[in-house]
Design a protein around this nucleic acid. Structure first.
Lengths: 211, 211
DNA sequence: AATTGCGTGTGACAAATATCACACTTGGAG
DNA sequence: CTCCAAGTGTGATATTTGTCACACGCAATT
């Protein structure tokens, strides 16, 4: 654990003003998570608001029988919205957050929240913007699974992956199937279709997004 | 438009303290929406944070082809989370809010948000709690449509309706089908199954929840 | 009483997706 | 090089859900 320079913070979080960055730099700890580490698990109490400064975190929803359903990634400059809704135990909610690569996180103890909200307007704007964007994102997920068929959902999924990971996606069909709650065979078949569309190129362990 | 006594406000919003209630009573307007009135539509700018003090508001998501998908109700004591994420135009998001009965709403102009956040801690706790509970609710919706079959989704839908509307649900099968994005025939058949389970009683225009 | 419109019931069929079985390919470990 | 495990391809089949066609009943209106 170590702290981060205010300048560095502002680079990642442009909404922060100088005072806020100084305060956080002063009071927060920085922690490194390794690939596969769990930042957040179902039914957990939060002690920190978590800001990602490096790396990448995957958020997904768990079903009763252990199914996974991909929600979104947190990237540098993002905060974990749920970690900021920290006052209450997140009851039956079972959202998982896992580092998909080595990830550096600024952890602000929750006892500072009231102070931050009250005295640092740029903090509160940041919080609002974080909620807003995550809410939007989740609503888009609802759209997809409520209204769209698998082929469109797969395409949307791949596009989102490409937005975050770049056009070369190191994913097996099985991994994709888990993320969108389908099955490997279906994904394979749909990928073939997308390939004949020219939307992707499919190789073993790699899908190149050309959308 | 008229204002509401602080006492009345606190009765509906127990998280509010005296000063906050006075401020809101001073600065906010109260508006009555009739059944069917739209409080919020896709791509709208918000000028007010909206607090429901009487009545009921239905929030649903619209698909590209005009499908509807029920998300949740706002009841007295609830605030519209999205109306509080008011800083930004809610881009491609297309969430609709419609009064399902005559509904009284306290409307706080957004120019007061900074002040409220800064000087009224009980406001900020209320806002956080509003976000948290709506986020949870939407995540539960995701669970249902991601992991469950129609029969379970129908049951969950009816239970939620009964929680809000009481055990006698004045719904046609067609209305239910729209809310869960299915078709009337499917709903009819599944309701029969639920009836033979003893979970509901089905009559014309009325379903009695016995869960 | 006849008409009409709406809500509902039902069987047959279609479409989307999941599942099963098994073959094939490829790249690395031994 | 050979073998093995992981990843992928594919047909057959099952399940779930949606669609179509049409019948029926009930209640309000004339």
């Amino acid at each position: 654990m170590f702290s981060l320079e205010p300048k560095e913070l502002i680079k990642q979080f442009p909404l922060f003003d100088q005072e806020l960055a100084s305060f956080i730099s002063e009071e927060a700890e920085t922690k490194i998570f390794n690939q596969g580490d769990v930042l957040m698990r179902p039914g957990q109490f939060f002690k920190y608001a978590m800001l990602v400064v490096r790396g990448r975190v995957k958020l997904y929803r768990e079903g009763d029988e252990g199914e996974e359903f991909f929600m979104y990634y947190l990237e540098p400059g993002n905060a974990c919205a749920l970690s900021m809704l920290c006052m209450a135990r997140s009851q039956s909610s079972s959202i998982m957050a896992v580092a998909v690569e080595e990830t550096e996180v600024v952890m602000i103890p929750i006892q500072h929240m009231d102070n931050l909200m009250k005295n640092y307007p740029s903090w509160y704007h940041f919080v609002i913007e974080t909620y807003r964007s995550r809410f939007e994102e989740v609503l888009n997920v609802v759209d997809q699974i409520a209204f769209k068929n698998m082929d469109q959902r797969l395409e949307w999924y791949l596009k989102r992956q490409a937005d975050v990971m770049g056009p070369n996606l190191n994913l097996t069909h099985q991994q994709i199937a888990s993320d969108i709650n389908s099955s490997r065979e279906v994904v394979s078949r749909l990928l073939k279709k997308l390939e004949s569309n020219g939307t992707v190129e499919v190789e073993r362990n790699n899908i190149k997004w050309k959308g």
